[in-house]
Design a protein around this nucleic acid. Structure first.
Length: 463
RNA sequence: GUGAUUGUAGCUCAGUCGGUUAGAGCGCCGGAUUGUGGUUCCGGAGGUCGCGGGUUCGAGCCCCGUCUUUCACCCCA
């Protein structure tokens, strides 16, 4: 008999963890609903053809593939074996686990294009899988919470994303965060202006690492990727924008990139988005324009977002952007969408590190009924019914054991109230309600217990 | 995929130079206490030293392989 283990990069979530995770899920869902998004779920499995080619070569490698059922190798020939994994994989694996929620969403939109009311707003909270090596804040199975709008170019959607981010993190109790925003068109413009038009993807991967490896290493990398010294010289203004006021950054970008049409369009979008946010009336905005923000996913075409929690060294906790042609890959061009994704697992890590989980999050059982003998149990069952009918989470200790054992159980489970029922209580009908925090006890009729417990816990919640 | 790192009781960790029967704290179970928890005291159970091979008279300790943990790179939530 071997000891059971978990696959690399996966985790169990016990009751305590789940309480906190559900707090995060509930908070995000609340905001999504308040902003008018509708729920959607898609299968964990997708056809591999749906997934491949959407995330770049790196992404394809990180896809979990599912071996075909039955004799998957039956049709393989010697030449297939020698052709290498890239050619062979499609022949033995037709399905894979979803890598994110955006591509399945695009697939769904295309398949249901005739019935969806556009613009379509959906939210989706499900696990995704990536076959990379686990490390801090990185798992092979993790949850994303996405909200996307497709079927409109309106920058109001970008503005709403910024608003949702603020609402979610504040409701979670994470107050020190930064919403970084940039626009792919600005990056394209930079590439134009420094003399490497069309190379913004290469440029992006390098400058995205700026805060991690520093200016010199970024320039080294670009050099290694074939950028000329002139181009690097022209790039110099980029490094002067850090941590400046939004208006100032916009002004400077306008001057620097005035020669580029596409950059001008990006700047107009960015300016308008921020105006909308302001008109809505967002208090104490945490938005920061970061012209070095790039983000890897190749399908972004307009705005890009990233959220960082500031007192912790965990990667971004949320990210998103606009994609103009995601559904094009599925034969439906010209549909624009924009979305945001919250990483629950990283948010959990941040909140755990900063001790931000509210103590009362997901209180379990409120009342434990502890009968001393079989007779007492007969009194217990109707009481249990009454408590539950009054919405008081309660349980009855199932075995007849020592009182000590039942009280220990209540302690371990943090149950704040225990109803003790012995022969005295059965005779008089006056049951003993024990408050486990204070240790005090009082005699009450069964009918009075639910009301009192509710009253006391309400008062506590207000404190 | 590349480079490091970790693994001993349920948990956190000791374990000397390779040498007798592998230890501690916490937790768990029982008792002191047959109607009252968190404290205290007493007792007890619990080990394939990740797994497989090798070196040796002898391996938790050395060597090889493998899995796992953590971290960095690539990339990303």
């Amino acid at each position: 008999m071997q000891k059971p283990t978990l696959p690399k990069g996966t985790r169990d979530f016990g009751p305590e963890q789940m309480r906190n995770r559900l707090f995060i899920f509930d908070t995000i869902r609340q905001t999504f609903k308040r902003f008018g998004f509708q729920p959607l779920e898609t299968p964990s499995l997708e056809n591999l053809s749906t997934l491949t080619g959407k995330y770049g070569d790196e992404g394809d490698q990180l896809l979990f593939k599912i071996l075909n059922s039955g004799d998957f190798a039956a049709d393989l020939t010697e030449t297939d074996l020698q052709a290498g994994p890239k050619k062979m994989t499609p022949k033995i694996a037709e399905k894979g686990l979803r890598y994110d929620l955006t591509v399945p969403f695009a697939r769904y939109v295309v398949m249901n294009r005739n019935t969806l009311t556009m613009p379509f707003r959906r939210y989706q909270m499900q696990p995704v899988w990536r076959a990379d090596r686990p490390q801090k804040g990185r798992y092979r199975e993790f949850y994303q919470c996405d909200a996307d709008v497709v079927g409109t170019d309106s920058l109001l959607c970008e503005a709403e994303i910024i608003l949702m981010i603020h609402e979610v993190f504040r409701n979670l109790g994470i107050t020190n965060f930064t919403v970084k925003i940039n626009n792919r068109k600005i990056l394209a413009g930079i590439a134009e202006v420094i003399g490497v038009p069309g190379e913004e993807a290469t440029l992006s991967v390098a400058i995205d690492k700026l805060d991690k490896i520093g200016k010199e290493k970024v320039l080294d990398e670009l050099r290694a990727r074939g950028f000329s010294e002139t181009a690097l010289y022209n790039l110099a203004p980029l490094f002067d924008f850090l941590n400046q006021e939004a208006d100032l950054v916009l002004d400077q970008l306008q001057t620097w990139l005035s020669a580029s049409d596409v950059a001008r369009r990006g700047l107009v979008e960015l300016t308008e988005t921020l105006q909308l946010v302001q008109q809505y009336g967002l208090a104490d905005s945490r938005v920061e324009i970061d012209p070095t923000l790039a983000r890897g996913l190749s399908y972004y075409t307009g705005a890009i977002f990233e959220v960082k929690a500031n007192d912790v060294s965990i990667g971004s906790v949320s990210g998103g952007g606009r994609y103009d042609n995601l559904t094009g890959a599925f034969g439906m061009p010209g549909l624009s969408g924009v979305g945001i994704s919250f990483g629950v697992d990283r948010i959990y890590d941040v909140m755990a590190e900063l001790n931000l989980f509210p103590a009362g999050a997901g209180q379990g059982t409120l009342v434990l009924i502890a009968p001393f003998d079989a007779e007492a149990r007969r009194v217990s069952l109707p009481l249990l019914n009454q408590l539950r009918a009054a919405q008081v989470a309660s349980e009855l200790y199932p075995d007849l054991v020592k009182v000590k054992k039942m009280l220990d159980y209540a302690n371990d489970k943090n149950i704040p109230y225990v109803v003790l029922i012995g022969s005295d209580e059965v005779q008089t009908g006056q049951l003993t309600l024990k408050n486990m925090n204070t240790g005090t006890q009082q005699k009450l009729l069964a009918e009075e217990i639910a009301a009192l417990v509710k009253k006391e816990t309400m008062a506590q919640a207000i404190d």
